[in-house]
Design a protein around this nucleic acid. Structure first.
Lengths: 223, 223
DNA sequence: CCTCCCTGAACCAATACTGAGCCAATTTTT
DNA sequence: AAAAATTGGCTCAGTATTGGTTCAGGGAGG
């Protein structure tokens, strides 16, 4: 075992739970049994189960046992885990709804300092030479626009999208669709968004962002 | 020509990260392993990894290891928990972005069965006598519109909003702003949304929904 | 000469896991 | 009702892993 065994056990348990194990009475085996089954110390199992407890998958009671709560489909945890299956097409659709609005809000609400942060992210992305660096500062550019939209909920939704986009299937997709030519197109589109923000022009900021996202969608989904 | 081995190793690492290596659990090998793999001293690897740390590609923890920020686990949960502090004003702003779009999607994508489900929720809400029942079927009406928008991600975002709106501070707010007169206004506005959906008219579905949400916002925030 | 980068090694500090034991709450058996 | 067994909550000492830091040297280039 490479280490961080508790993490592995936690994901193994989640997998077994979602595959319907222990669902008949909603009760997991005692920690001591799991420990011997996985061949680890009980402390380790305890930590693994604590992770499940943290994200609400499970509830523990002294003297009774550990019980699944996943039977509640309306919970935050369940919602979030369903989100992980989001398709690129669905996400691009929502980005085209939210990001132009965020850009519009930003044009009216941002402070000069915040706009400078946006400009800086754009600058670094433009000057970057390799794909990982560009990726990072590209994402940062978009994120900083959300950050000055002055709507915390919107900002957090974007955080969710950002996390989802950094997971495995997306990663392959981005790699395939990356090219130097596209990078420079993205940069010039970013520039137009930035210019509109600096002019404090909500309408054209929104339009520039929408145009950019349409380009991204075409490149990503090959439409 | 200067050697700058650390730089070369840093770019090599970035390349391997961007090619998806170590993405499964988001963890890089220990510095000592990398050192022997690259055939250099650990100090050199450390400097290379420091570059990755500087541009945010990676986070290091003593005793745990070095992790890719892209797959940082638990940030999803953190994001959701930050969402719990969402203000009513922020949420209403986002609802006015998303729900008209959902209604528009629904008008073009919904099946007849799904539209019947929407109609049914509207009917029960209209006929309800007490506030909790109305609340529930009101929420259900909105949710079922999202359900036939054919965008799973959008649907899950609405789920999040719905969960947040069912928490304590919101509940008080809704109770205060509830009245029989307002209930009947809501119902007639719902009716207009439903009519537009049944006519398969995306544009007026979107407008009717927006009009409704503006009413809700006025009542809730007293504007 | 000095400066800079790398090597090699040692030690420190934080974290993870083991194995064992005891406590407290609950359920089951007597 | 009382005793025993079960189960999660908690602590501790010990070992191993891993990033953080420092130091003494070597070699290349100014």
């Amino acid at each position: 075992m490479p280490k961080l065994v508790a993490n592995d056990i936690a994901t193994a348990l989640k997998k077994r739970i979602s595959s319907g194990e222990w669902i008949e009475n909603g009760r997991m085996p005692p920690e001591r049994d799991l420990a011997s089954e996985f061949g680890v110390a009980r402390n380790t199992v305890r930590r693994a189960v604590s992770f499940l407890e943290d994200d609400g998958t499970v509830v523990r009671h002294v003297g009774r046992g550990t019980f699944l709560t996943a039977t509640n489909p309306g919970s935050m945890a369940a919602t979030v885990s369903r989100m992980e299956g989001t398709s690129p097409a669905d996400m691009m659709e929502i980005r085209q709804l939210l990001e132009p609005a965020a850009a519009s809000f930003a044009a009216t609400n941002a402070s000069a300092t915040e706009l400078n942060a946006v400009r800086e992210a754009h600058k670094i992305a433009s000057e970057s030479q390799d794909m990982p660096t560009f990726e990072h500062w590209d994402a940062e550019f978009h994120h900083r626009i959300f950050a000055c939209s002055r709507n915390d909920f919107l900002k957090e939704i974007h955080n969710l999208m950002r996390i989802l986009r950094n997971q495995a299937p997306w990663f392959e997709m981005k790699k395939r669709s990356f090219s130097e030519e596209r990078r420079s197109i993205y940069c010039s589109e970013h520039q137009m968004v930035l210019d509109a923000l600096l002019r404090r022009d909500p309408e054209s900021a929104s339009q520039a962002m929408l145009a950019h996202l349409r380009t991204v969608e075409r490149n990503l989904l090959g439409r």
